[in-house]
């Protein structure tokens, strides 16, 4: 039955890499078409596109163009990736300290921790100490809401 299951993800990734390579090559040509500018980029891009074409031909030949990966399905990990993205994007808006505490707490809840004392205690203790350590160690200003900057 698994043979009937088609996974377009691998094909999309391959096309995405080909797309990036082509876009980057065209952008480099747009900036300057001199040999000095394209010395590495042009041959390398051509090689990448040729290898991608070869990979596609081999897959079509073996009938495995849309084969499914043996790894755990991507959607199972998607909530974690989404939470991490929200964390990174919220750092400046709500401060490194609050964002870190919230990320830790939400991650623990998402992964099944139901001891609320541990959720709160660990997130606050670890989150605030890490934010404080880095804010003191780094020579750059960090956006902080609770801790002294």
């Amino acid at each position: 039955m698994s043979e009937c299951k088609r996974d377009y993800g691998d094909f999309i990734v391959l096309m995405g890499l080909a797309g990036f390579t082509l876009w980057y090559l065209l952008d480099a040509i747009r900036v300057s078409a001199t040999p000095q500018n394209l010395l590495l980029i042009l041959p390398l891009a051509v090689i990448v596109l040729a290898i991608i074409a070869l990979e596609l031909i081999l897959r079509i030949k073996h009938g495995s163009l849309f084969r499914s990966s043996e790894e755990e399905p991507l959607h199972k990990t998607l909530p974690v990736v989404g939470l991490f993205a929200v964390y990174v994007l919220s750092l400046e808006a709500i401060g490194f300290d609050i964002a870190t505490v919230a990320f830790l707490a939400l991650f623990l809840i998402l992964k099944g921790e139901r001891n609320w004392l541990l959720v709160g205690g660990y997130s606050v203790a670890f989150g605030l100490s890490v934010a404080f350590f880095f804010s003191q160690m780094l020579p750059y200003p960090m956006t902080l809401l609770l801790l002294p900057s």
Binding site: F103, F126, A131
Partner: peptide, 13 residues
């Protein structure tokens, strides 16, 4: 569940 977010936080910082 404790290790992953902690290391992610360290990497971001």
């Amino acid at each position: 569940r404790y290790l992953i977010p902690s290391v992610l936080v360290l990497a971001v910082m």
